[in-house]
Amino acid sequence: MQKEQLKHLKEFEKLFQVNVESVHHMKYNIPPHIPKKRGPVSGNEGGINHKQAADVQQDQAENIKQTSRNSVRDMEYVTVPEFESIPQYMKGRVTYDQLNIVVDSFNAALKAKYKILSQPVKILSNHSRKLQQRFKTQETKDTKGRCFIVEEDIREFTQMKVDKRCQGILSMLRHCQRLRELRGGGLVRYVLL
C-alpha cells in the first residue's frame, strides 16, 4: 500500500516538475506586448445565442457613446506572422520588438494629442491652447472623425526622431495596414486604420 502511494507521489512530483519548468519558460519568454485578438475565426466560437449577442452589442454601443469623446483607439501591435510577411527590403535591420516600440510611441502621441483636443479651451495653458488650435487647423474633410498625427506631433509627444529609419518603420506599419498616409497642405497625416 505504501509502495503504491510512494510510486504515485513520485509520478505526481515528475508532473509537477514539468509544470514548473513550463511556467519558468513562459515567465522568461513572454513578449513585451501581447497582440489583441481580432475576433472569432469561425462561427462556432463564442458560445452565446443571438439574444445574448444582441444584448451585448447594445451594451457595447451604450459604452461607446459614453466614452467615445474621451478615449482614443490604440493602434494594435504587429503580430509575428504579420512581421514575417513584410518584405526583407522593407524591414532592413529593424526587429519585431523595435517595430512594436514605435507602435507604443505612436499610441502615446495619439493619446496626448487627443487629450489636449478633448479639453475645454478655458482650462488649457497658452502652449496647450496653441497646440489645440494647430490640431484643429490640420484637420481636413478626409480626416474628420478619424484619429491621426503628423510628424510634428511625433516630435512633440515622444522621444522618437523622425528620420529615415522612422520613415521606414512607418512604411512597414502601412504595409501591415495599421495606418494610412494622407498628404495635403504641406503635411503628411498618419491616419489610424
Score class of each variant (00 low, 15 high):
residue 61 A to D: 14
residue 125 S to C: 02
residue 180 R to D: 05
residue 129 R to Y: 10
residue 162 V to A: 06
residue 20 V to E: 11
residue 173 L to A: 12
residue 52 Q to R: 10
residue 94 V to D: 01
residue 47 G to Q: 09
residue 170 L to N: 08
residue 1 M to G: 13
residue 119 Q to E: 14
residue 170 L to P: 02
residue 138 Q to A: 03
residue 29 N to D: 04
residue 154 I to M: 15
residue 27 K to D: 12
residue 19 N to T: 06
residue 172 M to A: 02
residue 45 E to N: 10
residue 93 R to L: 12
residue 141 K to C: 01
residue 107 N to Y: 05
residue 126 N to I: 11
residue 73 R to N: 01
residue 9 L to P: 03
residue 82 E to G: 04
residue 186 G to F: 07
residue 90 M to A: 13
residue 67 T to K: 08
residue 149 I to T: 05
residue 43 G to Y: 07
residue 44 N to A: 02
residue 46 G to P: 09
residue 140 T to S: 11
residue 139 E to Y: 02
residue 77 Y to K: 00
residue 103 V to N: 01
residue 181 E to L: 07
residue 63 N to I: 11
residue 25 H to F: 15
residue 157 F to T: 06
residue 115 K to P: 01
residue 79 T to L: 01
residue 8 H to N: 13
residue 123 I to A: 05
residue 79 T to E: 08
residue 3 K to G: 00
residue 154 I to H: 00
residue 191 V to C: 10
residue 187 L to I: 11
residue 31 P to Y: 05
residue 50 H to K: 12
residue 8 H to I: 11
residue 174 R to V: 10
residue 58 Q to V: 09
residue 139 E to F: 03
residue 100 N to D: 01
residue 89 Y to C: 04
residue 165 R to Q: 09
residue 138 Q to T: 04
residue 137 T to N: 06
residue 18 V to P: 00
residue 187 L to V: 14
residue 111 K to M: 09
residue 91 K to I: 07
residue 21 E to Y: 04
residue 81 P to H: 06
residue 60 Q to C: 03
residue 12 F to G: 12
residue 40 P to Q: 05
residue 14 K to E: 15
residue 46 G to M: 02
residue 178 R to H: 14
residue 7 K to M: 04
residue 90 M to L: 15
residue 81 P to N: 08
residue 191 V to H: 07
residue 127 H to W: 02
residue 161 K to N: 10
residue 71 S to L: 12
residue 40 P to S: 13
residue 66 Q to H: 10
residue 22 S to C: 06
residue 6 L to E: 15
residue 102 V to N: 00
residue 129 R to Q: 12
residue 61 A to W: 07
residue 23 V to Y: 12
residue 169 I to A: 02
residue 145 G to F: 03
residue 14 K to C: 06
residue 32 P to S: 10
residue 88 Q to W: 01
residue 47 G to E: 07
residue 177 Q to Y: 09
residue 12 F to S: 14
residue 151 E to R: 08
residue 27 K to V: 13
residue 52 Q to I: 15
residue 181 E to Y: 03
residue 117 L to D: 05
residue 83 F to Q: 08
residue 13 E to H: 08
residue 189 R to G: 08
residue 18 V to R: 06
residue 91 K to R: 15
residue 57 Q to T: 14
residue 34 I to M: 08
residue 98 Q to V: 00
residue 169 I to R: 03
residue 47 G to I: 01
residue 60 Q to V: 14
